[in-house]
């Protein structure tokens, strides 16, 4: 794929990846006919392209993303929802499809989908997808780690559900709501999520996550996270 880097190698901004512009994947850029990394991250080959998976990064909204946001302002006909970083979501407060409109207040936590990303802002679905999260533990991790948290075909998230007995709402923007039978389980889940964030680039993560959760749940008191 490349004469200069191998898969899973850690690269830094400005590092040369290859000589073929058509192989430029995500988080790379083309300059003088060559492809370079734009971020600090790990090289990944997929679909005949060289991508860099960043170690950290801001949320880049995309259509159909499920997100969790916090209502920060109420305007006539519109809610302003904070999704973190520079992304403010806009959501119509009245919807044709919904029989009763959901009355939201500043400080409410919502789970919904990105309808489309326009020039004026990110538009969120205020209709059927919209759920208000009434209780639970809210955790934030870097958005680039969310795919790892979900896992291949949801495997990591299912592991978390099984081991902690909690319900999860996962936002692509990095916010996660954990609703569990009690706070000990919620804490165990939050601690496991933090572990996934820190060790996302290492192998054997699933086993370590299971062991970590069991250790917390079996201990007498809650572990200091």
């Amino acid at each position: 794929m490349s004469d200069y880097v191998s898969e899973w190698e850690v690269v830094t901004p400005g590092q040369l990846l290859c000589d073929e512009p058509k192989k430029a994947g995500s988080h790379t850029y083309i300059y003088g006919g060559k492809v370079y990394s734009a971020v600090t991250g790990v090289v990944n080959f997929r679909n005949a392209k060289i991508n860099v998976i960043p170690a950290k990064g801001p949320y880049r909204p995309q259509e159909d993303d499920d997100i969790i946001g916090i209502v920060i302002d109420i305007k006539p006909n519109m809610y302003e929802v904070d999704l973190g970083w520079h992304v403010i979501g806009l959501m119509k407060s009245r919807s044709k499809r919904r029989k009763t409109s959901l009355k939201l207040q500043v400080g409410d936590v919502v789970y919904t989908t990105v309808k489309y990303c326009g020039i004026r802002g990110v538009f969120l679905d205020g209709g059927e997808s919209l759920k208000k999260i009434e209780k639970g533990l809210l955790v934030m991790i870097n958005p680039v780690k969310i795919p790892r948290l979900i896992g291949k075909k949801g495997s990591m998230l299912n592991l978390l559900k099984r081991e902690t007995n909690c319900q999860f709402y996962v936002g692509r923007n990095g916010l996660i709501a954990i609703i569990g039978p009690d706070s000990k389980n919620e804490f165990a889940a939050a601690s496991a999520i933090k572990l996934i964030e820190e060790e996302s680039h290492l192998k054997g993560l699933s086993d370590r996550v299971s062991a970590h959760i069991r250790k917390i749940l079996l201990s007498g008191d809650e572990e200091d996270v």
């Binding site: 400005g14 300059y31 990064g57």
Partner: peptide, 11 residues
């Protein structure tokens, strides 16, 4: 900036 994941041409 690199730590924050801000895309750049180079350090």
């Amino acid at each position: 900036l690199a730590d924050a994941g801000i895309p750049m041409m180079d350090l």
